[in-house]
Design a binder for these strands. Structure first.
Lengths: 196, 196, 196, 196
DNA sequence: GACTAAGCGAGACGGTACGTCGCGTCTTAAA
DNA sequence: TTTAAGACGCGACGTACCGTCTCGCTTAGTC
């Protein structure tokens, strides 16, 4: 009684489900080919088992796509150079959105995240907020160093750096090349106005 | 007489459909409550009549949402002040995405536009490209006036100004207030770097 | 006024319609591939033109199938031999039901004739009744000759000879060979009881 | 995996579906008023549940109509009298085709059975073949008794007895009275030829 | 030889039913 | 007790044809 032995099948089937989900997301069709029934079929798991763990396919997709992508984000550690730290920050986003299964998954999830409060909460908790922490740290250091203006708003910086990448992913199309990060960072550092 | 009168029913039912679509989009639920059957029921039109004109509910939603929204975009005409022209440009986007039915519609459409090439084509043709023309004109004038650096890339400007707005709409949430436009414009004009 | 205006296009389109109908009936699929829209498309005639002349596709099919089939029925004229006359009678039915487009058409029409009073009326008027007249004449002559029993009921004779052929067409399947006619006739002439 | 699982709901919904089907078949309109949607509505079952078990409405109708009708067919057991046994045989058919829901169902099914090989297969397996077995037994006994000619063909007998009944049901109309059976049997036993 | 109404082609329309997909729930049997 | 298996109610999909209804255009026969 009260035996704290986790059922091993539980963990195993969870992995099977996530693997199948990632495979489906990476396939032609992205979220389109992601149905609970397809995940069940491919993973050899019963639909019930999936629903026991995730509310619907969007949470499942988000979970599956985030898991190893988020851990691959580079922490913009203090290297003494604000520009470089910002590039590190934005490059992680460019890389993630430009590759599978995260890119296609996010294309498919955008509408749901925008629309479903619970999914938005999860997304913000696991993706938006941690990154805000990161950018805040970078900005704070930048201000301390005297690189950035003291009133620099981290949220605005984040939106200016990340927004265009999502915009390309969703509306105006690729590319997601190496140069994108530096160009964005230089733009928001220097601005486009001519100095007189 | 000699008056080439197109089929009146045709035009009439088209309007009924678009009105019903807009009404549904503006309701609680946005694109979620937009089903072809609901549009048919509300407009008093047969499903087949809808399918005769639009491939699926996404094209219908795009059409319905764009029609009067696009025409409400302010043309950033030459007023001799680049900053003001950019604000005019970005304010149109803020206003559109912040109000019904365009905002909710675009939330629902994002995933489809990102995923369906035909829908993307339409969206780019009717939304992205015209706005690119506008921003290009503004940038060209800005360069000519000596306000903007000669190598200023209109696409980058557009993405920096528009991207964050979409990002809020889809991922990080409101607000879409008056100040957003000026803040974005000032950010990309001046940058955040401290001048030495 | 009140003048009968013979429009020649009228007659022409009628022929086009009937030809297209017969072609469709003879095709793989029989009545299944017979839709008013298909007839219109194949004949190059407007749907309206078809509906102007026939109530629905069943009447059209019946009309098209009967036209040259009925005229091909052999009249069982007086040849002095009742058995031979009966064989002539039944052979016409075997031949008609065994060939296109009449056979397939009747397979498709059976349910409608059984169910739609108006169609039944037409069918009886143009098919059943004339054949009843024929069989009555044969029977009358047979009785007069002393070949048939005086109380011989023509309707029963007709049903015994024709019923089995329809039964094969609809339920138990082919063949419709040469021997079928004589076998049926001999059966109902002689019966199967052993004489003592 | 291949486990025979007696799902109780399964059996229950099957009965609900068949009951609703039989009710609709017995109504004014016969197979005309039989749509899958109507069956679903009346039985309180989902359309998909119907399609899971029957390919289309024809198979459903056949199934529903046959089930208790076939079991009501009298077995023409050996009573020492061939005529009587034949009458027993044919009376079952007269009674079945003359009453609901079998009669109307068969009117509606005729065209489909004639046209759809799979439906024909089912019909022959469950209706035609068993009855052929019956008639064969009767004929065999009749020959053994010396009542019937030794070369009597059971298939021909069956077609002569059954064909006319179907013919009335589908083409020439009622009645299906008590006398029909005996008249048919006597006709094929004695024939109409005058003995000399 | 020009006029005019009937007949025509074209095809949009409201409508019914189709057969399918995938959802999320629920039940059962085995492990 | 947790699974796999899968039936179920449900909502919506997109399609096929139905039979009705304008729309001009064509054309025959009358003036």
């Amino acid at each position: 009684m009260g035996d704290p032995r986790p059922d091993q099948r539980s963990e195993r089937s969870k992995q099977l489900i996530l693997d199948a989900t990632r495979a489906l997301l990476a396939e032609e069709g992205g979220v389109r080919s992601l149905t609970i029934e397809a995940v069940a079929a491919r993973s050899g798991v019963a639909k019930t088992t999936i629903y026991r763990r995730w509310r619907d396919k969007w949470e499942l997709a988000l979970d599956a796509a985030m898991i190893d992508t988020l851990s691959s984000f580079d922490e913009p550690v203090d290297v003494g150079d604000t520009r470089e730290e910002l590039i590190t920050f934005v490059n992680s986003a460019v890389r993630a959105l430009g590759s599978k299964p995260y890119g296609p998954a996010l294309q498919g999830l955008a509408s749901e995240v925008a629309t479903d409060p619970e999914l938005a909460r999860v997304y913000r908790e696991y993706v938006v907020d941690p990154r805000r922490q990161q950018i805040k740290a970078v900005v704070d250091r930048g201000i301390a160093r005297g690189d950035l203006r003291p009133d620099t708003d981290p949220r605005l910086i984040q939106e200016l750096l990340i927004g265009p990448i999502y915009y390309r992913l969703l509306f105006s199309g690729p590319p997601f090349d190496r140069k994108l990060g530096p160009r964005l960072v230089d733009a928001i550092l220097d601005g486009f106005r001519v100095r007189r």
